[in-house]
Amino acid sequence: MPTVTKKRYFELLRQSYKGAAAARVVGVSTSCGSLWFLDAGGMLVPDPGPVSPRFLTQDDRIAIADGVQAKQSVKQIAAAIGKTFQSVYREIKRNSKPDGRYQPWWAHNQALLRRKRPNTERIRASRPLRALVREKLSDKWSPRQISRFLQRTYPAQRDMRACPETIYRALFAGLLGRKPGKLRTGRTRRKPHRRGVPHLNKIKNMTLLAQRPLEVNERRTLGHWEGDLIIGRGQGSAIGTLVERVTRYIRLIHLPHGWKAPQVRNTLITQTADFPEALRQSLTWDQGREMTLHEDIAALTGFWIYFCDPHSPWQRGTNENANGLLRQYFPKGSDLSPHTARDLRQVAQELNRRPRLVLGDRTPVEAMRTGARPRPGN
């Protein structure tokens, strides 16, 4: 039977036609229409229409079924309906019948059933949960940290637990107050990261990362740091950041007189003078011009200084992660010069007292005090 005939039959059923009347209109027997209805799952969910262009419609699913029957490839089917082949692949895998057949009306019913959300959002329904999540967000905890905290604190109370995505959705829906300033990143949506263009090496006598001892990669010995600069508006100000690889302990370097090589050298020497000798093992930096005088720094601090390859921020990923956390305090494009050394100490103290998953939910302060190692696999 032509697909258009079946389509018209199900359209009439959704318009409240009786099965026999719909069968007469399309020109088939009542028993034939009944078999179609049973093959579609024995029910028809009201279709309010697509809520977004990214959702598949009934016509899309009919086209997918026709393509599957004609043994077309997933990419050919996707091109015909204007969707990605990943969407078509997921649709066929998710909404096929138990016997493996892809039946478009069955598939559309299943999709409509999943789209219905009869339950009230957990954060909307629970005032104590909402208040607790709002409190932790105000303390600049991430949704993942909040979710783990709820799981540990309320193991037997499901109404007091929420996954990270639930917290994000509640935040963006306005259930937790105004969005700006609630997430510590300051963002209201996820943004893709783009890579730039590597620059030529202009620093003499560098020791590249490939020459760093392999034991540093194992993160078992304290005293190996990663460093970088956070640059302010118009490149007129900067803050130095140091992160210890094992404990994720952060030290911020105040640069009140600029961030050229002589200033960076002088401040690194003076502001790391209180480090115990055991914590002065190595320092990994990118190939920024501020480290031109790295030999002076190494001689006067005791650090072995290693440089990443050009445009390879993942080679000091611990520091990149820390810089992302710091952007909640020092947004991109802002002037960093008003921040005093006392301000930087307060920010570092707050971050060092925040629990980290990689440390088994201990804080960097606790890890530095006990010499605790990260859990295996993190």
Score class of each variant (00 low, 15 high):
residue 75 K to E: 09
residue 75 K to H: 11
residue 76 Q to F: 13
residue 76 Q to P: 15
residue 80 A to Y: 00
residue 84 T to W: 02
residue 84 T to L: 08
residue 86 Q to G: 07
residue 87 S to C: 14
residue 90 R to M: 02
residue 91 E to V: 00
residue 91 E to W: 00
residue 91 E to F: 03
residue 92 I to A: 08
residue 92 I to K: 12
residue 93 K to Y: 11
residue 93 K to Q: 07
residue 96 S to R: 13
residue 99 D to K: 00
residue 100 G to F: 05
residue 101 R to D: 05
residue 101 R to F: 05
residue 101 R to V: 00
residue 102 Y to D: 06
residue 103 Q to T: 08
residue 104 P to Y: 04
residue 104 P to R: 02
residue 106 W to S: 05
residue 110 Q to F: 09
residue 111 A to F: 05
residue 111 A to G: 06
residue 111 A to N: 02
residue 112 L to K: 10
residue 113 L to D: 02
residue 116 K to A: 04
residue 117 R to P: 00
residue 117 R to C: 00
residue 118 P to H: 11
residue 119 N to I: 15
residue 119 N to L: 14
residue 123 I to Y: 01
residue 126 S to R: 09
residue 126 S to E: 15
residue 126 S to Y: 03
residue 127 R to L: 14
residue 128 P to F: 09
residue 129 L to F: 02
residue 131 A to P: 01
residue 133 V to N: 06
residue 135 E to M: 12
residue 136 K to A: 05
residue 138 S to D: 08
residue 138 S to W: 05
residue 138 S to Q: 05
residue 138 S to I: 01
residue 139 D to C: 10
residue 141 W to V: 03
residue 144 R to Y: 10
residue 145 Q to H: 12
residue 145 Q to F: 10
residue 146 I to R: 09
residue 146 I to Q: 09
residue 149 F to W: 03
residue 151 Q to L: 11
residue 152 R to E: 11
residue 153 T to S: 07
residue 156 A to M: 06
residue 159 D to S: 09
residue 160 M to C: 10
residue 160 M to S: 10
residue 161 R to M: 07
residue 164 P to G: 12
residue 164 P to Y: 08
residue 165 E to C: 10
residue 167 I to N: 04
residue 168 Y to Q: 07
residue 168 Y to F: 00
residue 168 Y to R: 04
residue 169 R to S: 12
residue 170 A to P: 02
